[in-house]
Design a protein around this nucleic acid. Structure first.
Lengths: 201, 201, 201, 201
DNA sequence: TATGAATGAGCTTTCATTCAT
DNA sequence: AATGAATGAAAGCTCATTCAT
């Protein structure tokens, strides 16, 4: 059973790479099989269909993200720390599993073409959780409340995703803690304090 | 001539709608013909191929955007006013031609799979112009310069595009100056002053 | 009426060129119209269909050939003179109207794909007439009669057509009476006296 | 492997039949599939495209012909025997594989429309080899040398191909050694000794 | 007579999926 | 479990022909 599971996951990972390299629509099942070093039919033995394969990948992605949201965030932390956790999660994922992030950025987060209702729900759920985080912080007085939580979270996620998007579109790898640190710091800085020069200047 | 041109544009607009509704890959030429109320072959009479049709749509989009960047912005204006113009352009476009914005958001701004080199160039050009705007403002002292212009412009565009993206993914129409005003104000407020509560509070 | 007829013939001649240049199947009605400097629809005004156009060309060809067979040959002449007339007719035609000969050689004389029953009949009729010529000469004792007339005429026509075919496939023009003379002489020499060296040698 | 190869060849043979029956342009991939009793897609599984399929057929033809020219001819034989080998090869092929000969006669030997440069080269190569054979015989004094080798070989091949062409256009089968013998004898007789009655007569 | 926009049947090809082994 | 041959529905595109003006 473990062996079987392993094989299934193996194929999934190669599929992930092919989907990232070529996009969902341009990816061929034959290419996935070839990448996994496996026969054509075996892909179907382990995964019902192309769509199924894609959903399994998304599940993996959402699983990790939700796990982080469930366990990685301390509700009593300051929102700055919480958002830092989110940012770092994305950056870490991009470093360790760039294909997955790539797919999320290009095929899910702006898709609409591939967004089945079920997938859209997952996405909205994620947006919703971030919004709740922001709203709670507003209640605690950590964030201004004259901008709706929905807006603030949209701006935050937009900045984060688009930051990743530039990396993704340039096929730019992310190496070294320094770069991650800089991205996170700048993102948080701008989000909390804005883009204006310091008052004293 | 006018009549002919009109027909061509007509087909383009219906194609725009179909591409928006179904995405480039899922859009069928037959659907475009049907939507436009013309025969199958006529679409090809006016547009060389499916890809061509899509490119014509993108050209229209980039044409408008570049025109706005060329003529709509006063280089001596404060960057806040310049960014406001950009925001309003997107919102106005979304109001008057939601399909076009939809396609830009879903098929271009994060695609990578469908992004031919030529298309990617257009996109990078647009990113570059915004970055220049930000950099100039930094030089004039209107924006903090301890965050790179590339980062600031990414955050700004990310917030803007994702804001539109939420409208797009919900198929949410945008009507009334009030809503547009609110979005623009909030976006600018957060971008310039950040999300923290006012100091005095 | 004369004017109308002229226009019709005019289009036919340009069609002839296009059919020759591209072959029947690869020839486009639009190309014929363009070559003739005439609008798309006008070709159809004068000629019912593409097939019709092609048939009109063949009719022209067969017309000339039959006319030559009817009036150009003296039944009492020696067969050598008769065959010389045939050879010269083909060579003259190739000189003055290479398109027509080209089409006969490439699209008719070996086609079978484009050969409708009607067209095949025309072809067989032509073969038949040549055979009769040969048979008559055999009766007159001008040709050996231990090879069937059908064979002899096939060999003769094969040599002639294939000779033209090499010109056609190389797009080689035929200029000057000298070359024509040489071809005709050689062809007749071989046909009548064979390829062996003279006995006396 | 043998089984797979067999299937591929099987499809090729049915394709050959359909191409012969309808000509390259009028042949439909669906018809080939149907004739072979396989599904639509399987034809493409084994052969890349329609053009490819056709090229494979030609390759088969040229392969056999070149093999015969390479190994079937003794350079020291009298030219009469060499030409007899060529004639018999064509006749044998027509008997055992009439489709292949049919295609050569109708789609290659006079085509020009379908003749890609690569195909034309094969054809010219074949013509060239025959010419060399004739030229060598002229040097040995076995053939008159006051007619250029190019002409003599054209006349010979023209007679041979046209002889076959009459069989082909009439869909006339060739059975029995007697008929083959007669054709070969007559062809050689006329080619070497000409069509005139014997001197002594 | 003359135009060229409009039509749509029909073509080759692709590729996710199934199935016999 | 594993293979890859076999399937066939659809897709984009072409182009002879028609038709309104």
């Amino acid at each position: 059973v473990t062996d079987k599971e392993k094989r299934k996951i193996d194929i999934l990972e190669y599929a992930c790479r092919v989907f990232r390299e070529r996009g969902y629509h341009n990816a061929r099942m034959a290419q996935i099989a070839e990448a996994a070093g496996v026969s054509y039919g075996l892909v179907y033995h382990y995964h019902k269909s192309k769509e199924n394969l894609f959903d399994a990948i998304l599940e993996k992605w959402w699983g990790g993200l939700n796990e982080m949201m469930d366990n990685g965030l301390d509700a009593h932390e300051h929102v700055a720390d919480q958002l830092a956790v989110i940012i770092n999660y994305f950056l870490d994922q991009y470093e360790s599993n760039p294909d997955l992030v790539h797919i999320f950025i290009t095929e899910v987060s702006r898709s609409s073409a591939n967004l089945t209702p079920a997938r859209l729900d997952m996405f909205k759920h994620w947006i919703g959780r971030t919004e709740s985080l922001i709203a709670a912080a507003q209640k605690r007085g950590e964030l201004r409340d004259n901008i709706k939580a929905r807006y603030l979270s949209t701006f935050f996620l937009g900045a984060l995703e688009t930051m990743l998007s530039t990396l993704v579109l340039n096929n730019q790898p992310l190496r070294g803690a320094a770069q991650k640190k800089r991205i996170a710091t700048n993102l948080l800085e701008q989000f909390f304090n804005g883009a204006l020069p310091p008052k004293g200047k």
